[in-house]
């Protein structure tokens, strides 16, 4: 007699993921910590991001100021915590917009084919041919530097990647025997697309979204560093590494170290989580 199968609850799935991919699990915990810090910044940060203490300017890391102070005496630890809000907000919203937009067009392009596919793909070729940061700079220069426009610029440049990935997955999925079977039993074209093909092409999109988050955070930081990101006074990790503070970095290297470290650790966590998810979700990589 067959043993009854244990129901796969979300909690069980998480426990299994932690056992299989400890590095992915640690990365997930880091991301949760960054999200919590961003959400609870008003309570977690020792001071407000605009609070200046001129007598304490350019002080090194100490128990009073964990990451030291900048040229205006502002607590770098607090500014790094507040800065995580912009990085995460821009990253999450831009990736969601870019991936959803790119996926819709990729799905239609791959499923319907024909002239629509040709037109969409030539447009994607053109966007992909321009280096990512150059395209983002052109879009932000057009729309003006603001939180909303940075999100739009990043969503725009992330669209072709999701588009290509989903188009490829749909092209391969629609050749499967289960699609032929669905057609044979009389399913309509849209039912096949939404009920049979779509669920089979979502896993690569989840992985792409996770890895794109890292890329979006780096691009947002690069735009802020170049003075084309979210304008002051709200701190951004990239913005903290540019401007007036840059001339003091040689005397106070902690101004440069901690915001950059925050970007690197967050992006590293997203990349490692993306790798772990890919290993778990892609049946060919399961050993």
């Amino acid at each position: 007699m067959a043993l009854p199968r244990r129901r796969a609850t979300p909690l069980r799935a998480i426990v299994r993921f932690c056992r299989q991919k400890p590095l992915g699990a640690i990365s997930g915990l880091i991301i949760v910590a960054v999200v919590l810090a961003a959400g609870l910044a008003d309570w977690v940060a020792p001071s407000h991001y605009r609070t200046q203490d001129i007598p304490a300017r350019l002080q090194g890391p100490s128990p009073q100021h964990f990451f030291g102070t900048d040229d205006l005496g502002r607590d770098i630890f607090s500014r790094v915590i507040y800065g995580s809000r912009i990085s995460l907000l821009v990253g999450l919203v831009a990736v969601a917009l870019g991936v959803v937009h790119g996926s819709i067009w990729g799905f239609l392009s791959g499923y319907l084919g024909g002239k629509l596919d040709m037109t969409v793909q030539r447009l994607m070729d053109a966007i992909l041919a321009v280096p990512l940061l150059v395209m983002a700079l052109v879009v932000v220069a057009t729309l003006g530097a603001s939180l909303f426009n940075v999100i739009l610029a990043l969503a725009f440049i992330l669209t072709p990647r999701a588009n290509r990935l989903l188009r490829g997955s749909v092209l391969s999925a629609r050749e499967n025997i289960y699609v032929e079977a669905a057609r044979a039993v009389g399913c309509s074209s849209w039912r096949i697309a939404l009920r049979h093909i779509l669920p089979n092409v979502t896993a690569p999109i989840i992985v792409l979204a996770t890895i794109s988050l890292g890329s979006a955070i780096i691009t947002e930081a690069s735009l802020s560093f170049l003075g084309m990101g979210v304008p002051p006074p709200f701190p951004t990790w990239g913005g903290m590494l540019s401007g007036e503070g840059r001339s003091y970095m040689i005397y106070a290297p902690w101004i440069a170290i901690f915001p950059g470290l925050a970007i690197t650790i967050t992006v590293l966590a997203f990349n490692l989580l993306g790798d772990a998810l890919r290993d778990v979700l892609d049946p060919r990589l399961r050993s």
Partner: peptide
């Protein structure tokens, strides 16, 4: 190295 922003 992949996760490190080049400007940093």
């Amino acid at each position: 190295f992949l996760s490190m922003p080049s400007f940093w």
